[in-house]
Design a protein around this nucleic acid. Structure first.
Lengths: 260, 260
DNA sequence: CGCCCCTTCCTTGCATGCAACGAGCCCCCC
DNA sequence: GGGGGGCTCGTTGCATGCAAGGAAGGGGCG
């Protein structure tokens, strides 16, 4: 299961490639029954796509998908921040967030690798605690559905900075975002907390740009092999024939006469 | 698979009850292998919860969970509306939305059952088309993760009105929300579209109140058996000992010394 | 020479048998 | 009489055998 995910993340299988069972059986050393279970789970996570006739292929993600995933993470983390603000935070949680962020602040100007690893860990725990403070198990599930994608986690693209210290400013901005989030949650300013968290997630967009412009760095991002750099043809919304086919004519109100 | 979900929705199994495999095998007439697959899928959908030692139990939802699901649906549908506004809508899509909503408007004051069924269908297709207009497959997936819960769909609680015509005003308000959404999307007013969609989803909160106050109606809501009416004890955030246990001491910044 | 049909192999999905883990209970010992 | 240890049964997870569906290739017919 874990090994199978690693296999896909590392680009061992190319997008669109069929994931046949028998080769995986002899590659992973497990039987077909647990393998099928793992494949179904990875399909649910969105890494695989089920074929109509059975079987799975590795799903392909466009650069637009990555941007959407980042925006959606911002939306959901924004909701978490808003919930935390609206529902009230414990003094202990606020203190923990502050302590984490203070340590983060002491790390953003260091450039050794160990400090950066610590930064990643602390950043993860900051976001995890804020999510807990929302006190919504459904929100946790929703966010997991996004962050399970390899490039959508709160720290997935951050380590572009590790390779390119010139853009360390982003870490400074992220640190300030954290401070604003703590303040907004404490003052129960839900709207502010929400928009701050959204903007915070959008920092990953900057990292994405950095990463795609440096192919050597991109190759170190987990799951980068699943992303097609060539953007899919953005259809012109004004004259898009692909949007025309109506799969469900019965639901098309234009074809539905007024009820008797 | 479908039959298994029906079994849970209809309250054939109570929340917390263990879903043993062998009884289900002789009840559904299928073997254990596809049954296990179905159980895993239902766990992913959130209807079942996996036990640490193996096996599954029916998940229990509190009234707060239902409210969270409604709010989250509003958040995600709000994002869909915003995306549709920001990314531009085709004239065809806008016309389809208008046609659907016009028909809806002609139905809200009728009280026969057939009109209500038509209303439900049109409402679903309105929301479905708006979601398509967001042009984000990841958003579709996220929203599916919420609406797969039996009580969280856009029309799940609406039909409380079918039983209680006194509160048909909600349908009038929903119709106006739809009109505002179309207008906002056409004018590319993303923020307005988003907040309108959120408020639109919150109409379900009113339906929820109606439903819980009328137990006989509640029993007709799909999946109602999974909802515990007694609200879980809302812990006082200011003095909550349950939030204290730190599951991951290594990630606790308060215990982490400053890095060397 | 091209197209269609048939056959064959490959792949997936299902059913069943087996082993290992854990819970519950009974018996024995203290 | 109480507690602990061991035994037994029930349950889950895994491996393998079998059947059905589909795709591809080859052969035959038009």
């Amino acid at each position: 299961m874990l090994r199978l995910r690693e296999l896909i993340f590392n680009g061992r299988y190319s997008p669109g490639e069929r994931m046949a069972e028998l080769p995986l059986v002899e590659l992973l050393g497990v039987s077909r029954t647990p393998l099928r279970l793992a494949l179904a789970q990875l399909e649910h996570e969105g890494l695989l796509r089920g074929l109509p006739g059975g079987g799975y292929v590795v799903r392909e993600f466009t650069q637009g998908d990555v941007r959407d995933a980042i925006e959606l993470r911002g939306v959901l983390e924004g909701t978490a921040a808003r919930f935390a603000a609206e529902r009230g935070a414990t003094a202990r949680d606020l203190a923990a967030l502050r302590a984490t962020n203070e340590t983060i602040g002491s790390l953003v100007h260091r450039s050794d690798y160990e400090s950066f690893e610590r930064y990643l860990s602390l950043n993860e725990s900051f976001h995890a605690r804020m999510l807990k403070m929302a006190r919504s198990s459904l929100l946790v599930r929703s966010l997991e559905g996004i962050t399970s994608l390899p490039f959508a986690g709160p720290s997935a693209l951050v380590f572009a900075q590790a390779e390119l210290p010139a853009s360390r400013d982003i870490l400074v901005i992220a640190h300030r975002h954290h401070s604003g989030l703590i303040d907004a949650i404490e003052r129960r300013q839900g709207a502010r907390a929400e928009s701050l968290a959204r903007e915070h997630a959008r920092l990953a967009l900057a990292n994405l740009e950095i990463v795609v412009d440096n192919r050597d760095v991109l190759d170190r991002v987990p799951g980068a092999a699943l992303i097609t750099l060539v953007e899919e043809a953005e259809p012109d919304p004004a004259a898009d024939p692909a949007a025309a086919p109506e799969p469900d004519p019965a639901a098309d109100p234009a074809a539905a006469p007024e009820p008797a």
